[in-house]
Simulated scan of single mutants.
Amino acid sequence: MGVKEDKKKTCGTICLKYLLFTFNFLFWVAGGVVMAVGVWTLMEKSDYISLLPSNIYAASAYILVIAGVIVMVTGVLGCCATFKEQRKLLLVYLILLVFIFLLEILAGVLAYIYYQQLNEELKQNLKNTMIEKYGKEDSKHITKAVDKLQQEFKCCGSSSSSDWAENQWIHLESAKGRVVPDSCCKTVVDLCGTRDHPSNIFKVEGGCMTKLEKFILDHLKIIGAVGVGIACVQIIGMVFTGCLYKNLKTEPY
């Protein structure tokens, strides 16, 4: 009877080891995905981040990058701990899993919170940013971001092209008679912004605000889904790790 019980324990441990190894490999790949989503958000969309008054969107992406790096390192540690059957390493691995789980849940929660308040923030701040900072020497990054926004989303102004009438730069000599920035034009050429006829510039209902809002909301969904989704998968890893840790404690040597 004792031999059979020992065999069952050994068999159970081996099964858990391979299950945990498989999980670690998938976990390592998932870490790469998490990090990639965070880096992509920060690198490709950094111009748009500068138009947002809150840092929550950027913070969510930074958390994903940090979590992704830790996940990849933890995945390697998990493989070592599993095959060497070292209980101390397994315990460290389990603690790291819990820490990453909390980080990713935090990223998901931040994305959800910002999802709820984004519309109000854009209403209050996007127009002011365009009016007060566009064209200023000390706000070149804002000018670049607005130009990119208007060209990529084929829009003009925060709510409409008429918003540009309130911009200070438009009334300066350096604007050379433009009534809207050249980036509002359907075909961008120098001084095309001197004519704001619908045949020449983008006239989009709701302006750039609705376009940027939709864009950010879609990406918040991705950030939230990736963070919470991988965190849920980690629960399986925590269960496997806990079971293997327990088996190694009770298994005879």
Rank of each mutant, 00 (worst) to 15 (best):
residue 144 K to R: 12
residue 144 K to T: 14
residue 144 K to C: 02
residue 144 K to A: 12
residue 145 A to F: 03
residue 145 A to Q: 03
residue 145 A to L: 02
residue 146 V to M: 06
residue 146 V to E: 07
residue 146 V to K: 05
residue 147 D to Y: 02
residue 147 D to H: 02
residue 147 D to S: 01
residue 148 K to Q: 14
residue 148 K to W: 06
residue 148 K to V: 11
residue 149 L to R: 05
residue 149 L to I: 09
residue 150 Q to A: 00
residue 150 Q to D: 00
residue 152 E to N: 14
residue 153 F to H: 13
residue 153 F to D: 06
residue 154 K to T: 09
residue 154 K to V: 04
residue 154 K to D: 05
residue 155 C to Q: 07
residue 155 C to P: 03
residue 156 C to Q: 05
residue 157 G to R: 03
residue 157 G to F: 00
residue 158 S to A: 15
residue 159 S to V: 10
residue 159 S to Y: 09
residue 160 S to K: 10
residue 160 S to E: 13
residue 160 S to A: 13
residue 160 S to L: 05
residue 161 S to W: 08
residue 161 S to Y: 15
residue 162 S to V: 00
residue 162 S to T: 04
residue 162 S to W: 00
residue 164 W to D: 09
residue 164 W to R: 11
residue 166 E to W: 00
residue 167 N to W: 07
residue 168 Q to H: 14
residue 170 I to V: 14
residue 171 H to N: 13
residue 171 H to W: 09
residue 171 H to L: 11
residue 172 L to G: 11
residue 172 L to Q: 15
residue 172 L to P: 00
residue 173 E to H: 09
residue 174 S to E: 15
residue 174 S to T: 13
residue 174 S to N: 11
residue 175 A to F: 02
residue 175 A to C: 03
residue 176 K to M: 14
residue 177 G to I: 11
residue 177 G to F: 06
residue 178 R to D: 07
residue 179 V to L: 04
residue 179 V to T: 12
residue 179 V to W: 00
residue 179 V to I: 12
residue 179 V to D: 00
residue 180 V to S: 11
residue 180 V to Q: 11
residue 180 V to K: 12
residue 182 D to E: 09
residue 182 D to F: 07
residue 184 C to W: 10
residue 184 C to Y: 12
residue 184 C to H: 12
residue 185 C to L: 06
residue 185 C to I: 09
residue 187 T to R: 09
residue 188 V to H: 08
residue 188 V to Q: 14
residue 189 V to D: 03
residue 190 D to L: 08
residue 190 D to K: 13
residue 191 L to F: 12
residue 192 C to V: 10
residue 193 G to H: 06
residue 193 G to W: 04
residue 194 T to L: 01
residue 194 T to M: 07
residue 196 D to H: 01
residue 196 D to A: 09
residue 196 D to Q: 04
residue 197 H to R: 01
residue 198 P to Q: 04
residue 198 P to A: 02
residue 198 P to N: 03
residue 199 S to K: 10
residue 200 N to E: 13
residue 200 N to L: 08
residue 201 I to F: 02
residue 201 I to R: 03
residue 201 I to W: 01
residue 202 F to K: 08
residue 203 K to H: 14
residue 204 V to W: 01
residue 205 E to L: 07
residue 205 E to G: 10
residue 206 G to Y: 01
residue 206 G to R: 01
residue 207 G to S: 08
residue 209 M to S: 12
residue 209 M to Q: 15
residue 210 T to V: 14
residue 211 K to T: 11
residue 211 K to I: 03
residue 212 L to S: 12
residue 213 E to F: 05
residue 213 E to Q: 15
residue 214 K to R: 13
residue 214 K to T: 15
residue 215 F to E: 14
residue 216 I to F: 04
residue 216 I to S: 03
residue 216 I to L: 06
residue 217 L to C: 07
residue 217 L to P: 02
residue 218 D to K: 13
residue 218 D to I: 04
residue 218 D to A: 13
residue 219 H to C: 04
residue 219 H to M: 08
residue 219 H to Y: 12
residue 220 L to A: 07
residue 221 K to T: 09
residue 222 I to F: 04
residue 223 I to N: 10
residue 223 I to L: 15
residue 223 I to Q: 12
residue 223 I to A: 10
residue 224 G to E: 12
residue 224 G to I: 05
residue 225 A to P: 01
residue 225 A to N: 11
residue 226 V to M: 10
residue 226 V to G: 10
residue 226 V to W: 13
residue 227 G to Q: 10
residue 227 G to P: 09
residue 228 V to E: 09
